[in-house]
Every structure is written in C-alpha cells, then in structure tokens.
Design a protein around this nucleic acid. Structure first.
Length: 269
DNA sequence: CTCCTATCCTGCGAGC
DNA sequence: TGCTCGCAGGATAGGA
C-alpha cells in the first residue's frame, strides 16, 4: 500500500488530528509486527502531548513531548479515526485522545513497524536512508552520477531505499512508463537525458499522487477515513496484458526488481 | 560492494 | 458454492 504519497497523506491527516492533543490512554493489542514492540511503548506514550507528525521516507514520526512513536505501515498498515465502540480484527495500537477520539493502528499482514525513539535519540531504521525525491538535490545529474557502474535494473535502483526513499512498486512502474524507460534497463546505462526525464517523472507522479490523496489499492485509506484516487490515473501498474493507453499495444509483464512489473514494449526503451 | 532470493503474515481474486 | 493456489504496496537477512 503505502509508498510516499500514501504515507504523506496519512501524515497530513494525523497531524491535523493529533497536533496539540494529549494522549490519555494507550492500548497495545499485539506482541510483534515485523519486530517485537517495545515493552514500554504504552508507558512512554501515555500522557504525552503530540507536538507534530512528520515523515521521513515511508516512516511516520509522531513527536510527543516524552518520546517519539516511529511507525512504518509495511504493506497493509492504516491509521483510522475511531470511537470507543469501533474495534476491528488486526487493530494493534489504540491511542485515546483528550478530545474523546481514538486513533487506531491496524495492520492485517503485520509487516509494519512500531517503535520508540527517545528524545535526542535516533533509530537504526532511519540511519541508512537515501535522499527524498521531492528535495531539490534530487535531479538528473544526481541520478546519473549515483547510478554509474550499477548493473541492476533501473527499477530496482529507484526502489532501493538506501538510494532514494519513498518510491515503491506502484510509483516506480508509473514513473518509468512516463519517462519512456524500460524497467529492466541497467541503471548504469542510462544517459543524462534519460535521468533528467526519470527524475521529472518521479517528481510529477509523486506530487500528483499526493494531490489525489494517494492510491487506494486493497483497502488503503487515510487516517481521516478518506480513500485516495490516484489509482484512477495508473497507466501500467496491474495492467499487464491490457492495451497501452498511449499506443494500444499489449502491455508486457514480468518480475523486475523482485516484484511484478508491467511496461509497454513499444513506448519504453 | 552489488545483486538476487526467500521470508515474515493475512486476505483476496482467479480458476477449477 | 467451496476449495486451493498464487500473488499483493515493504524491508531485510543471507548467500552467490
């Protein structure tokens, strides 16, 4: 589900709901997601005042005055606004606020991450992250320079969170289609002009997807309950075997960068 | 280093 | 209708 646009959409909703609120009760309903939850999670959040919700890569950071809650949505994580009666299977964490509302983290597949960062501390998950695609430093020259001698696919390269953060399987495919580049092209063989187009495509796609509230695939929704609409603008994701929306030829499908991939054999070189 | 595969887990759609 | 199979947005450990 959640790539940068979905995480950013969730961040905005959570920030609006949580900023300035006090967490009056914390209920933890699972032992582990991808990893074990810290035992003192509830104790460290209980009574805390939420200062802001920020995003780094695909991670959400709920900054409270006593500790920061680090959250990764994995594949199926969602936050939702709930009342006291609203309980669903796979609800793992419930934050009760001083305005009577609750925010609930739900994650059926449990690939997500919930952890604490103590004030002034850091976290290993944030240590080796690459650059943000919407930062000005991410430009064609940067991509060209950093991809030299890389023999793996360009798709795998832009999905590598140690290189570039926030791009996952959906937006990698969409950006490569828009840039007219085959996902299997070795990253090191891209020309400067290819890199310029790809950077522009990634930025354009991510911005448009954020504006649309993300892509609702499976049952993703933002914390306020709204679903995203960018899936209506997907050109290739999930469309292998269907006609290319530009040239009409049958979209190809395969596994590139370890995941299912669709592309147009005529439009993408 | 770099690249690739398997793995964690549940849900859902396709196909029989 | 009901079953099994394969695949799903991510990160990461381990092997080649």
């Amino acid at each position: 589900m959640p790539e940068l646009p979905e995480v950013e959409t969730a961040r905005r909703a959570l920030d609006a709901l949580l900023r300035g609120r006090r967490i009056v009760a914390v209920q933890v309903d699972c032992q582990r997601l991808r990893r074990a939850l810290p035992r003192n999670l509830a104790a460290r959040l209980q009574g805390g005042l939420v200062q802001e919700v920020v995003r780094r890569a695909k991670y959400l950071l709920l900054r409270c005055d006593r500790a920061t809650l680090l959250c990764h949505l994995g594949m199926t994580g969602t936050w939702r606004l709930a009342d006291a009666q609203d309980r669903r299977p796979h609800d793992h964490l419930r934050l009760s606020l001083d305005d009577g509302r609750c925010l609930v983290y739900r994650d059926p597949r449990r690939f997500g991450l919930l952890d604490l960062i103590e004030p002034g501390g850091d976290h290993p998950a944030l240590a080796d992250l690459g650059i943000e695609p919407l930062d000005a430093v991410f430009d064609g020259a940067w991509l060209h320079r950093s991809s030299r001698r890389r023999r793996g696919s360009i798709k795998g390269f832009i999905m590598d969170q140690r290189v570039l953060v926030g791009v996952g399987n959906i937006y990698a495919q969409e950006a490569l289609f828009r840039a007219r580049l085959r996902p299997g092209r070795p990253a090191g063989r891209l020309a400067p002009a290819d890199c310029d187009r790809l950077v522009a495509a990634i930025r354009t796609i991510l911005r448009a997807a954020i504006a649309a509230g993300g892509s609702t695939v499976s049952d993703w929704h933002s914390a306020g309950g709204d679903q995203g609409w960018f899936q209506l603008q997907h050109q290739v994701y999930g469309r292998a075997g269907e006609p290319c929306l530009v040239c009409g030829s049958r979209l190809r499908g395969g596994r590139i960068g370890g995941r299912g991939t669709a592309w147009c054999g005529l439009c993408q070189k």
